[in-house]
Design a protein around this nucleic acid. Structure first.
Length: 303
DNA sequence: CGAGTTTGACCGGCGC
DNA sequence: GCGCCGGTCAAACTCG
């Protein structure tokens, strides 16, 4: 994120009356977990930092939609009313993030430009296939297994929101039914397989939808080209805008694909400007607001 | 000069 | 089988 962006924070957004929703394997959580006890049960650490947020009780938010699936969800989300809220979901995604990227033709894939994470090879057998035949077999067997994903809807004028990690853009595509392109980013940490997609809502151009895939296996690093090194401590120390520190910290286990394990990560999604979080669908749960409707009073959802 | 971005091409999944 | 579309690659380019 650049400083300009911080300066552009919509006052209405930084009001910091917000709510969150979190989802674990079988639990949706909505509301205000002030002592973080419930969230922590599910691996989330909520750090309401801004005084205003705490004073306001950290609630009074509203939800649009939660619990979604993949691409489709993005679209559903876009369709949702863009109230200024913060919701969060925790995608524990029982599967240790094993990403099996389809093995391309050796002639193409072996070029593995620097960013190809070594973990992929470990986890998915992207080790150079010994023979063409075996690679073909793998192609068949290895269906693409996605890592846990969750998305944020963020009201922001900038597309790529700073989140404390360094990302390298590796692609951009036009999105069907949307005037805005979708950008693809990979974490620049060579051991980290986290990716994210960033696109703007076609319904509300002020909303940026950021979808994270996978979990970081390292601490936050410096901002790209900015020279500002961000640790989570620094984050807490208000190096970010107040709204920017309304983070959800999944105390999640690091994916096993990471060779070096850090005791704890602080996931800092987006700049946490009023965001909507989404989760990978849980097969046991409704994927739309059905459940949400059961939990969140209608009046609360349309603010 | 290295790191990151752009962009057209390519590939695979999926629906028809 | 075919075409569409999302996702990725990688060469060329830009930037600091």
């Amino acid at each position: 994120m650049d400083d300009d962006d911080k300066d552009r924070v919509d006052p209405a957004i930084t009001e910091s009356s917000w709510t969150f929703g979190a989802v674990s394997d079988s639990v949706y959580f909505f509301g205000n977990d002030r002592d973080n006890s419930i969230l922590s049960e599910f691996g989330w650490n909520l750090r309401p930092e801004s005084a205003s947020a705490e004073e306001s009780g950290g609630d009074a938010g509203s939800f649009d939609r939660i619990g979604v699936e993949e691409e489709e969800n993005d679209r559903l989300l876009m369709a949702a009313e863009s109230t200024i809220t913060t919701t969060a979901t925790h995608c524990t995604g029982g599967e240790p993030g094993i990403q099996t990227r389809p093995v391309r033709d050796a002639s193409k894939s072996n070029s593995s430009s620097s960013e190809d994470p070594p973990e992929n090879s470990t986890a998915s057998g992207e080790n150079k296939p010994p023979a063409e035949t075996s690679s073909k077999v793998k192609k068949k067997v290895q269906k693409r297994i996605r890592q846990p994903r969750f998305a944020f809807m963020t009201k922001s004028e900038v597309d790529h929101l700073e989140d404390g990690y360094r990302w390298r853009k590796y692609g951009q595509k036009a999105v069907k039914n949307s005037p805005f392109p979708r950008s693809y980013y990979r974490c620049t940490n060579s051991k980290c397989t986290v990716k994210k997609r960033v696109e703007r809502s076609s319904e509300d151009a002020t909303i940026v939808i950021t979808t994270y895939e996978g979990q970081h296996c390292h601490h936050t690093v410096g901002f790209p080209r900015g020279g500002l090194v961000l640790s989570h401590e620094a984050t807490y120390a208000n190096h970010l805008t107040p709204s920017a520190s309304q983070f959800y910290y999944p105390r999640a286990q690091f994916p096993q694909q990471c060779s070096h394990s850090v005791p704890q990560t602080h996931h800092v999604p987006g700049d946490a400007r009023e965001s909507h979080l989404l989760a990978e669908p849980n097969p046991q749960l409704p994927t739309d607001e059905g459940l949400l409707g059961d939990i969140v009073p209608p009046g609360m959802r349309n603010q």
